[in-house]
């Protein structure tokens, strides 16, 4: 489900909550986090591909929000801003993970987690996901924002903090890399 479904109808509510939370209203902050937790978790899941990592990221983002909410200026949509924080958190986690490669190897050894099996050709999709996740950061972000999150190139550009043309270029590059796979 793309983020807009969550955010569109409640956009004014969200804006109010953000304003209150920035002013230090605890209740507003809690409901802000509660309403967006699932969105963050779902996004993180798509990026990480497994549940426990997604939960870690979602928690981290929730905590980050406590400090970061004061810095949200309302110039972009709250959801785009949240996207960006989530993406950063995912990337931080993956970098940290690369540093401790040995441990992760141990974790992967016995049982990698698998994607939901109930879907038809889930296996092919899973392989595609694996390939996409292995792309360079920018390309991956662009591909996932546009295809998995169903955003326009413009919206993806806003989240990634670059120009629309750059997003298109990243996707073109990604297609080239994935050529053998598609």
């Amino acid at each position: 489900m793309p983020l807009t479904a969550d955010a569109a109808d409640t956009e004014t509510d969200v804006a109010d909550l953000v304003t209150l939370a920035r002013a230090g209203d605890r209740q507003a902050f809690v409901s802000l986090v509660s309403t967006h937790y699932d969105f963050v978790y779902r996004t993180a899941y798509r990026w990480c591909g497994n549940r426990s990592d997604a939960e870690d990221v979602a928690q981290e983002v929730s905590i980050k929000l406590a400090a970061a909410i004061a810095a949200f200026d309302g110039r972009s949509k709250f959801s785009s801003w949240l996207y960006r924080i989530t993406l950063n958190a995912v990337r931080d986690m993956q970098r940290a993970r690369a540093r401790r490669g040995r441990h992760v190897t141990a974790l992967a050894e016995v049982s990698p987690q698998s994607a939901p099996p109930e879907q038809e050709d889930a296996a092919a999709t899973r392989q595609l996901w694996a390939a996409v996740r292995a792309l360079p950061d920018k390309q991956r972000d662009a591909v996932l924002l546009v295809y998995a999150e169903d955003l326009t190139h413009a919206a993806a550009a806003e989240i990634m903090g670059c120009r629309e043309a750059t997003v298109s270029w990243h996707i073109f590059e990604a297609r080239k890399t994935l050529r053998g796979f598609l």
């Binding site: 489900m1 978790y41 798509r46 997604a54 979602a58 595609l128 998995a148």
Partner: peptide
């Protein structure tokens, strides 16, 4: 094929 990326939905959050 990239459109298939939309296919995986996250399991419900714990």
């Amino acid at each position: 094929p990239l459109a298939r990326l939309g296919g995986i939905e996250a399991p419900a959050a714990d």
